[in-house]
């Protein structure tokens, strides 16, 4: 493109092309963040489930949860850094960052509630992240995220009731010498992983593939 005079039709062509290309770049990255956080959460949850079944030391099981914010946080910083030059910053980016900052803080509050009052942290986390996903979907106008977020919120309701729905499995776990409380926790872990698979991993892949083929 050079510095030259143009006719009216060429002007319109340039305006339409530049605006369309820039919008496409803004949308390109969102799938990667969902894949990063989704896969990290699913893998750590399933690791917790297996670790509990194998009776690995409790401190190992507890510390493994910290992998989610560590891997997710570092991964997000790397993705932001890589995207910095490759794409322009929009009002949408700023809105989404603000939404997830608030949900990050809400998760902190949920964590405190779990420690102090024994609130169900898995249920609260899944519900909060589902809400964040729905809002992100609405801001970006990605129907797939909105639907996945709502599905995640609905599925998160199964977490506290999982042992009632999977009664036979809970009984089998108890018969293998596991306490009632442990059996409930194991089932909650599996449902928690499924919620994040539906809510983040699947829509993440859909968005990522769409961006690659755009």
């Amino acid at each position: 493109m050079r510095e030259q005079q143009i006719d009216e039709h060429r002007s319109l062509e340039i305006i339409s092309k530049m605006i369309a290309d820039t919008s496409a770049h803004i949308d390109n990255e969102s799938g990667k963040y969902f894949l990063l956080w989704g896969y990290t959460t699913v893998i750590v949850s399933l690791f917790e489930y297996v670790a509990q079944l194998l009776h690995l030391p409790m401190h190992l099981c507890l510390w493994a949860w910290w992998l989610i914010p560590i891997v997710g946080g570092i991964g997000t910083l790397i993705l932001n850094r890589r995207a910095g030059v490759a794409r322009p910053k929009s009002y949408v980016d700023r809105s989404i960052s603000a939404v997830w900052m608030v949900f990050g803080l809400s998760f902190g509050m949920a964590f405190i509630a779990a420690l102090v009052y024994g609130a169900n942290i898995l249920f609260l986390t899944a519900m909060l992240m589902g809400m964040g996903t729905v809002i992100t979907g609405k801001i970006c106008q990605h129907r797939v995220l909105t639907v996945a977020g709502i599905a995640g919120m609905v599925l998160s309701l199964l977490i506290p009731a999982g042992h009632l729905l999977l009664r036979e499995y809970a009984t089998a776990l108890r018969e293998s010498g596991i306490t009632h409380v442990e059996a409930i926790y194991y089932i909650e872990l599996v449902i928690f992983a499924v919620v994040f698979l539906v809510m983040m991993v699947i829509p993440g892949h859909i968005l990522y593939n769409r961006a690659r083929h755009a």
């Binding site: 493109m1 050079r2 510095e3 030259q4 143009i6 060429r10 002007s11 340039i14 305006i15 092309k17 530049m18 605006i19 290309d21 820039t22 919008s23 803004i26 322009p88 910053k89 929009s90 009002y91 980016d93 700023r94």
Partner: peptide
């Protein structure tokens, strides 16, 4: 051509 392209890019972003 070029100045219009620059402004068209910037009009949709911060």
């Amino acid at each position: 051509e070029l100045r219009l392209a620059i402004v068209s890019i910037l009009v949709g972003v911060e």
